[in-house]
């Protein structure tokens, strides 16, 4: 860990004023401290924002509003969330461990860095960590890596489960800087790696992620998050699927699907959604609809199973919503 200065902000204004070119905001610390110890991140200044008043969880006619500093555990257990957006609650409860969820913030979760082992080991080549140094994952051990949205520069997945649920629900993040606040759809907020994998999102230097807004979606009450992994808890997804269905009788009136563990960012599946609308929610229609779910996939040496596993995970999520997994 490199030496750094440390300060605490007590208001949002103070935080924005205190942020510099080489500073990092500290919330729950569950990612930043880790990466600083590994010398993957070495900010000159760390600004603690954890006590800022950004912890509210509320619901109104414009949707669900979650402050960036709300804890994962609080959001997962909140009655508004469990009742109206079970997919969010489930995605959170399938993340990390209880201890981490008690510390980690929603904003930090959405902004967390990839778990690619090469990104986390400064002795190896990683374009995301050190632009231009190469990508050791492409020729290395890459079972957990992405098959969608990859480039020759980077194949790292975005690790957040929550973000997969939020992308399925068309959520936005609220970004604040000294000029004011703007809302950006989460699906647009994340960037594909291209040849600049070190640029992961549209957050500007010094800008603060203040909260998340999930627009109203009454039928999100019928939603679920299926996460496939080797170990039962405490592991990042091999594949995951966030699904919500607007079911009219047996027919899918509308549907939302997004996938994790497969893409360099949370991966919305519009083609599968289109193939499902107005169809009956049955095993055969679902299986037909997922046929082309991963047509653009570029498997690596150890993750060739991911397209098939993704298709199966979608089927399982949808059949779970039909009550027939």
């Amino acid at each position: 860990m490199r030496p750094f200065t440390y300060a605490s902000a007590s208001t949002v204004e103070e935080a924005l004023a205190g942020a510099g070119a080489d500073s990092a905001y500290l919330a729950g610390g569950t990612t930043l401290v880790d990466l600083m110890k590994l010398e993957v991140m070495s900010p000159a200044a760390v600004l603690n924002i954890d006590t800022l008043p950004l912890r509210d969880i509320r619901h109104d006619h414009t949707g669900l509003h979650v402050g960036a500093l709300a804890r994962m555990s609080d959001v997962a257990a909140h009655r508004l969330v469990t009742a109206r957006y079970p997919v969010i609650s489930q995605a959170l409860l399938h993340s990390a461990s209880p201890q981490l969820r008690n510390m980690a913030s929603i904003g930090g979760n959405v902004l967390q860095r990839t778990r690619c082992g090469y990104f986390r080991d400064p002795a190896t080549a990683c374009n995301k960590r050190t632009p231009g140094s190469g990508c050791a994952a492409i020729t290395g051990y890459n079972r957990a890596h992405a098959v969608l949205g990859t480039s020759e520069s980077c194949v790292a997945t975005h690790p957040s489960d929550l973000a997969v649920a939020l992308v399925a629900l068309d959520a936005s993040v609220l970004l604040r800087d000294r000029a004011g606040e703007r809302a950006v759809r989460l699906a647009d907020f994340y960037l594909l790696p291209g040849d600049t994998p070190h640029l992961e999102n549209r957050l500007r230097p010094g800008e603060l992620l203040a909260g998340v807004t999930v627009p109203p979606l009454s039928w999100a009450r019928r939603s679920t998050y299926v996460k496939v992994r080797d170990r039962r808890p405490y592991e990042f997804a091999l594949t995951s699927v966030a699904a919500a269905v607007d079911l009219r009788g047996d027919t899918i009136a509308d549907v939302r699907l997004a996938a994790g563990g497969v893409g360099t960012k949370p991966w919305r599946l519009p083609a599968v959604e289109d193939a499902l609308r107005s169809r009956p929610l049955r095993a055969d229609t679902v299986k037909a609809a997922v046929t082309h779910a991963a047509d653009d996939a570029t498997p690596l040496s150890h993750n060739g199973f991911k397209p098939e596993l993704l298709r199966r995970t979608i089927v399982r999520a949808l059949l779970t919503l039909a009550g027939r997994p």
């Binding site: 496939v228 080797d230 594949t239 596993l309 199966r312 995970t313 399982r316």
Partner: peptide, 9 residues
């Protein structure tokens, strides 16, 4: 073992 996704518990 999940019949679709193969997790083993």
């Amino acid at each position: 073992v999940h019949r679709l996704t193969g997790e083993i518990r």
